[in-house]
């Protein structure tokens, strides 16, 4: 009931959604030196409008084609949540149309965060310091993230009952009439030790202070124990002195050690 199940009571919204930050930290790639060995994208199997357009563009602007492929993971529109994304796997390998290439003059606005897109030039993509717009903090904040599924055991009969009445454990909604949903996690009991006042043991920001060391107990020793303790203290002092002041040359001079 103590700190070890701290996570257990963490409401799912407190857990960082999977993949947050993944797109911001780019894995760096360099284009292959041998153009012929590039595998997938060139012969696009599907004949959809976009892929043909892509192919056309890659022919027309052939110097930008190899450059865009490394940055595919970041240029992909990140708006749909991962879980619901049901796009065919082929799309991943096809570079999306480089939108900036068409009309570089008029600034375009991002669909997700409504901020102007920076003009895209092919040179930027290879620059390791360049961060695509999708990796900017403003954009990432606006992206709808997918959430991890609820921790509830799906085999529980209680869950089955609630599910038959339409409650989805992954919906991140509590029970109750729609629009007035209740809490999602039970209230956590907290045992307060002793009679510490409200706010005691917390600093000004409300964060817990490290616990005070317990007061040292006064021990009563009998003469034998006193003697033993004195000897122990002496030994310890000797050890410390050696550790700090021992000098090999002095030792050599004295003929000790070695």
């Amino acid at each position: 009931m103590a700190s070890e199940d701290e996570d257990y009571f963490l409401p799912p919204e407190g857990v960082r959604p999977f993949s947050s930050g993944v797109r911001r930290k780019r894995v760096q790639f360099v284009p292959s030196s041998n153009l012929d060995t590039t595998t997938a994208p060139a012969p696009a199997p599907s004949s959809s409008g976009t892929s043909i357009a892509d192919k056309y563009l890659s022919i027309v602007m052939n110097q930008s084609a190899p450059n865009t492929s490394p940055s595919t993971p970041t240029q992909r529109a990140p708006s749909p949540p991962i879980r619901t994304q049901s796009a065919p796997p082929t799309q991943d390998t096809i570079p999306p149309p480089p939108s900036a290439a068409t009309t570089p003059a008029a600034p375009e606005y991002c669909d997700v965060c409504n901020l102007p897109l920076p003009p895209q030039s092919s040179a930027d993509a290879t620059d390791p310091k360049h961060r695509p717009h999708e990796a900017s903090l403003a954009h990432q904040i606006c992206v709808a993230h997918s959430h991890p599924p609820s921790h509830l055991d799906r085999t529980r009969p209680g869950l089955r009952y609630l599910s038959t009445y339409g409650w989805d454990p992954d919906s991140r909604l509590g029970l109750g009439a729609s629009g007035r949903e209740g809490i999602r996690e039970p209230i956590r009991p907290r045992v307060r030790p002793g009679t510490a006042g409200l706010g005691a043991g917390l600093d000004e920001d409300g964060d817990p202070l490290p616990p005070r060391p317990p007061p040292v107990k006064v021990q009563k020793l009998n003469p034998k124990e006193v003697r033993k303790k004195a000897a122990e203290d002496r030994r310890r002092a000797e050890r410390i002195r050696k550790a700090f002041y021992q000098n090999d040359e002095v030792l050599k001079y004295l003929g000790e050690g070695v």
């Binding site: 509830l152 869950l159 009952y161 609630l162 009445y165 339409g166 409650w167 454990p169 509590g174 029970l175 109750g176 009439a177 729609s178 007035r180 949903e181 209740g182 809490i183 999602r184 996690e185 039970p186 209230i187």
Partner: peptide, 13 residues
């Protein structure tokens, strides 16, 4: 019990 209109519905668990 899921949609019973309580002022503060309890936690599902």
């Amino acid at each position: 019990l899921v949609h019973f209109d309580l002022m503060d519905p309890p936690a599902p668990e």
